[in-house]
Amino acid sequence: MDPAQEHPDNPFGMDADCRNCPDLCDERTTVVHGYGDVAADFLFVGGRPGPGADRTGVPFTGDPAGRRLQRILGDLGFSSSPPDADQPELDGAYLTYVTRCRHPERGPTDEEVATCDAYLTADVRMINPEIIVPVGQLALRHVAVEHTTRDASTLDVADCHATTIRGRGFELVPMLDPAEQTDAETAAFVEHVGESVLNRDYRQTKGRSGARD
């Protein structure tokens, strides 16, 4: 983690009591803002907090899907903590969501996604990553609208999982929702990032070397 960084939890001081979406305020446990290394090259973006993150306040923690993603981070060298850690020690990775509050009975509405967009935009600008990992269908389409020339409505995360998509200023490496991944799909993602992304100088080869248009 950046040695100048005081703590990994909501390091940019975003509104921890945000009340911009009235229908969510009484349903959520906590507002889940970003977490991790502010000097990260890899930005992992989920669609909305899982039940574990809603409890812990830390993205991708506290439930089986979170533990799967934390194992992936460990396998790639981004985490030195066990997969069940509620506050993992991350180096080179930052975790965040398209929307910051969880409704236990439904996914986010289009209005809620739009309302939260300023938070994600701020995360992207302040982290300025080399690689964005959209986790799940909602995250892929939302990130693709802003950061690729592709028609986001045509992108299916199942088809794009463990591939590289050329972005505008970034590369996108989509990932299936960890709650839906098989062990083989997890292994494919780790292999792709480990062999095709980390083992080349992605800072110099963005938009080339195997990246899709």
Score class of each variant (00 low, 15 high):
Cys116Ile: 04
Asp84Gln: 09
Pro108Glu: 05
Leu95Arg: 01
Asp117Arg: 14
Val145Trp: 08
Ser153Ile: 11
Arg68Gln: 14
Ala118Phe: 06
Asp156Lys: 15
Asp117Cys: 12
Ser80Pro: 00
Pro83Gly: 01
Cys101Ile: 11
Gly74Asp: 00
Gly92Met: 12
Pro88Ser: 07
Val157Met: 11
Glu112Tyr: 03
Ile132Thr: 06
Pro88Asn: 00
Val133Trp: 05
Thr149Met: 14
Leu120Lys: 02
Ala152Val: 08
Asp75Met: 13
Val157Glu: 05
Leu90Asp: 00
Glu112Phe: 00
Glu146Tyr: 13
Leu69Pro: 01
Thr148Ser: 09
His142Ala: 00
Glu146Gln: 15
Asp117Pro: 00
Arg125Thr: 11
Arg100Gln: 05
Thr99Ala: 12
Glu130Gly: 11
Glu105Phe: 13
Asp151Pro: 02
Leu138Pro: 03
Gly77Asp: 07
Ala158Pro: 00
Ser153Trp: 10
Val113Asp: 03
Glu130Leu: 14
Cys116Val: 00
Tyr94Met: 10
Glu111Asp: 13
Asp84Cys: 00
Leu155Glu: 03
Thr109Asp: 14
Ile131Thr: 06
Asp84Gly: 01
Glu89Ser: 15
Ala152Phe: 04
Arg141His: 04
Arg150Met: 15
Leu95Lys: 02
Asp84Pro: 04
Arg67Cys: 11
Ile127His: 06
Leu90Trp: 01
Arg100Thr: 04
Pro83Met: 04
Gly77Phe: 07
Tyr119Cys: 14
Ala122Ser: 14
Val143Gly: 01
Leu140Ala: 09
Asp117Ser: 15
Asp117Lys: 11
Ser79Ile: 02
Leu90Val: 04
Arg67Pro: 05
Ile127Gln: 10
Ala144Gln: 05
Leu73Cys: 00
His147Met: 11
Arg100Asn: 08
Thr148Leu: 14
Arg71Gln: 15
Val143Pro: 02
Asp156Thr: 12
Glu111Asn: 12
Ser80Gly: 12
Leu155Met: 08
Glu105Ala: 15
Leu76Asp: 01
Gln87Thr: 14
Pro83Glu: 08
Ala114Leu: 12
Ala122Leu: 15
Ala85Asn: 13
Asp123Pro: 05
Glu111Phe: 06
Thr109Lys: 10
Gln70Phe: 03
Ile132Lys: 05
Cys101His: 10
Met126Gly: 04
Arg150Phe: 15
Tyr119His: 13
Gly77Asn: 06
Pro134Lys: 07
Ile131Ser: 07
Leu138Phe: 01
Val124Trp: 04
Ala144Ser: 14
Glu111Thr: 11
Val133Ala: 09
Ile131Glu: 08
Thr121Leu: 15
Ala122Ile: 14
Val145Ala: 07
Arg102Glu: 09
Gly92His: 09
Gly77Leu: 10
Asp86Gly: 08
Phe78Lys: 00
Arg141Pro: 06
Pro88Ile: 06
Val98Gly: 02
Thr115Arg: 14
Ile131His: 09
Pro129Thr: 03
Ser80Phe: 07
Ala85Trp: 01
Leu155Ser: 09
Val113Leu: 02
Gln87Ser: 13
Arg68Leu: 11
Ile132Trp: 03
Arg141Glu: 07
Ala144Glu: 02
Ala118Gln: 10
Gln70Asn: 12
Tyr94Gly: 07
Arg102Pro: 02
Gly107Ala: 03
Leu140Gln: 05
